[in-house]
Computed example of a mutant assay.
Amino acid sequence: MAVRSSLLALALAVLALLAAFPAAAQDELQDGPKSLVISYRASAAHRVAFRRYLATNLAPRLRAMKAKGEISDFRIFYSWYRQPAVWDGLVILRFPTFAAVSGWNAIEHSEPGGLDAAGIALADPVASYSSDLAWSRNPDELKDGDVYYVIPYEYRNEGEYRDYVKAYVLPQFDGWIQTGALRGYEIYMNRYGTGSPWDSLFIQHYRGLAAFGKRQQITASVRDTLRNDPVWKAWSDKKAGIRSESENSIAELVAH
């Protein structure tokens, strides 16, 4: 009887755990989006000065907001190169609650994108996206000298896309972490995404230039092992019809 009771308790615990997985994937949708992704464009003449502004002006202000609990975290990235359809600066703000977003909205009344007059003279805040950090691993292990690879995607159906990320994308990312090349990752979902420029945004944290240089080699190696998994292989075969990818960015960390 004791053994039967123990087995029953174990079975119930397993069922409860399995039942929790679908809900966990949707947890962020039970409240308003608590991340804001802001992109900026600077002219070629202002790129150097705008990077300096982000590091010496905006970053200290964001650190002060974090110390007061007005934001829970932030990170500032800057693209390696100037590209036709890619931002120069990218700021991601995370808020402790959805209500806390209103504090940032008040700043936007006088400082679009959080830029004061000096910042506006150097760059334009092109777009701000209310987003959810839907999946991540070691997202706050941010290191100077690491390489941040940023990939925007559009998808045709959100539910299908979430299943695709769990079954196809995450096993690869976790495999890259196991090789030691990747330190962590963040996957943001645009809460109000309707297509271009992105519905989801991947940020991969590579452990320095050498690890990033082996990206293609490591990607192919991990995929070779995953092809033995029929579920992963099925998603791989149909991924082209699930999402489309636009211009990628290679970036450095300016501040966090």
Rank of each mutant, 00 (worst) to 15 (best):
P125R: 08
Y185A: 12
F50Q: 07
G193C: 09
T225W: 01
P96R: 13
Y188R: 03
Y149A: 15
Y53F: 13
A49Q: 13
L18I: 02
S6P: 02
E186T: 14
N57Q: 12
R94C: 07
I177H: 00
I92V: 15
G32F: 06
G195F: 05
R61M: 11
L133G: 09
T56W: 08
A167K: 08
A234W: 04
G184H: 07
D140G: 09
G159H: 03
R75H: 03
Q30T: 05
F77W: 14
W232F: 15
S35T: 07
T56N: 13
M65S: 10
A118D: 09
I76Q: 06
A23D: 00
A220V: 05
A11Q: 01
A49H: 10
T225F: 04
A19L: 01
T219Q: 04
W87K: 05
A181F: 12
I250R: 09
L12C: 01
L209S: 12
F173N: 10
E108G: 03
Q216I: 10
S110I: 08
R41Y: 04
G69R: 12
A42M: 05
L17K: 00
N138G: 03
H205V: 12
R4A: 05
Y155C: 08
Y40I: 13
F95P: 05
A19C: 00
E108N: 04
L18N: 00
R183S: 14
N157R: 08
I76R: 05
G213K: 06
S236G: 04
L54A: 13
P96Y: 14
T97P: 08
P230F: 06
D163Q: 09
A255M: 05
D140W: 11
L12Q: 01
G241C: 01
R75S: 09
A255W: 06
L7C: 03
Y40K: 11
R207S: 10
A99W: 08
G213R: 08
H256Q: 12
P152Q: 15
Q30P: 00
L142G: 11
P22D: 01
D174R: 04
G193K: 12
V231Q: 07
A64L: 06
L93N: 03
R215C: 07
A167C: 07
